[in-house]
Amino acid sequence: MTHVIFYEKPGCGGNARQKAWLEAAGHSLDVRSLLSWPWTADSLLAFLDPLPVAEWFNRAAPRVKSGEVVPEALDRDSALTLLLAEPLLIRRPLMETAAGRVVGFDPATVAAWLDSPALAALDGRRTEGCAAMSGDCESI
């Protein structure tokens, strides 16, 4: 199958389930911390640039949930500056293979990207966010 570089928030229950689904589908993982990775504007944009700015953000992050950060109100440069300063705000997981990059864990997107029918079976299940997984997954 495919080798996936998987950027996660260590200890996040949602990311743990996503990794388990990938491994159960036969993919190998190189797991890295999204929070401590030495991101640059270019390395982060390699993942985020294809998406609208509002989709760059982790909707379960405390500052987003509280309304302190409103992704739809940010322009590209302001959003990038904020994400580099506070990686907890980055939508996760970020995943990378030799074939490209994906942000988030939408089952249909990930299944097509990895040519992995087993992952398509997850469609319709809650696969992102922490609300359904464990209390305060977003706290550091």
Score class of each variant (00 low, 15 high):
residue 4 V to K: 11
residue 5 I to R: 15
residue 7 Y to P: 01
residue 7 Y to W: 14
residue 8 E to N: 10
residue 8 E to S: 04
residue 9 K to Y: 12
residue 10 P to T: 06
residue 10 P to E: 01
residue 11 G to K: 06
residue 13 G to N: 00
residue 15 N to P: 05
residue 17 R to P: 00
residue 17 R to H: 12
residue 17 R to A: 11
residue 18 Q to Y: 06
residue 19 K to L: 08
residue 19 K to C: 13
residue 21 W to R: 09
residue 21 W to F: 13
residue 23 E to H: 00
residue 23 E to T: 15
residue 26 G to Y: 08
residue 27 H to M: 05
residue 27 H to E: 06
residue 28 S to R: 12
residue 29 L to S: 09
residue 31 V to P: 05
residue 31 V to G: 02
residue 32 R to A: 05
residue 32 R to Q: 09
residue 35 L to S: 10
residue 36 S to T: 15
residue 37 W to Q: 14
residue 37 W to K: 00
residue 37 W to H: 15
residue 38 P to W: 06
residue 40 T to K: 11
residue 40 T to I: 13
residue 41 A to E: 15
residue 42 D to N: 11
residue 42 D to P: 00
residue 42 D to Y: 01
residue 42 D to V: 13
residue 42 D to F: 01
residue 44 L to D: 07
residue 45 L to D: 03
residue 46 A to H: 11
residue 48 L to E: 09
residue 49 D to C: 04
residue 50 P to D: 01
residue 52 P to W: 02
residue 52 P to D: 14
residue 53 V to Y: 03
residue 54 A to C: 00
residue 54 A to Q: 13
residue 55 E to D: 15
residue 56 W to I: 07
residue 56 W to R: 12
residue 59 R to E: 07
residue 59 R to M: 08
residue 59 R to W: 02
residue 60 A to L: 01
residue 60 A to H: 11
residue 62 P to I: 04
residue 63 R to K: 15
residue 64 V to R: 07
residue 67 G to T: 02
residue 69 V to R: 08
residue 69 V to W: 07
residue 70 V to H: 01
residue 72 E to D: 11
residue 74 L to M: 14
residue 75 D to V: 05
residue 81 T to H: 06
residue 82 L to E: 10
residue 82 L to A: 13
residue 84 L to S: 07
residue 85 A to C: 12
residue 86 E to L: 09
residue 88 L to M: 13
residue 90 I to K: 09
residue 90 I to Y: 07
residue 91 R to N: 15
residue 92 R to G: 03
residue 92 R to M: 06
residue 93 P to A: 08
residue 93 P to D: 09
residue 94 L to G: 13
residue 94 L to Q: 11
residue 98 A to T: 12
residue 100 G to W: 05
residue 101 R to H: 03
residue 103 V to Q: 04
residue 104 G to T: 03
residue 104 G to P: 06
residue 104 G to H: 04
residue 104 G to K: 05
residue 105 F to P: 05
residue 106 D to V: 06
residue 106 D to T: 05
residue 106 D to R: 12
residue 107 P to L: 04
residue 108 A to V: 15
residue 109 T to G: 02
residue 110 V to A: 04
residue 110 V to L: 04
residue 110 V to E: 02
residue 113 W to S: 09
residue 115 D to R: 14
residue 115 D to M: 03
residue 116 S to F: 08
residue 118 A to H: 04
residue 118 A to D: 11
residue 121 A to P: 04
residue 121 A to N: 05
residue 122 L to C: 14
residue 122 L to Y: 12
residue 123 D to Y: 00
residue 124 G to P: 10
residue 124 G to T: 08
residue 126 R to N: 09
residue 127 T to D: 01
residue 128 E to W: 02
residue 128 E to S: 10
residue 129 G to Q: 03
residue 131 A to D: 15
residue 131 A to M: 06
residue 133 M to A: 08
residue 134 S to Q: 13
residue 135 G to M: 10
residue 136 D to E: 11
residue 136 D to P: 02
residue 137 C to P: 01
residue 137 C to Q: 05
residue 140 I to D: 13
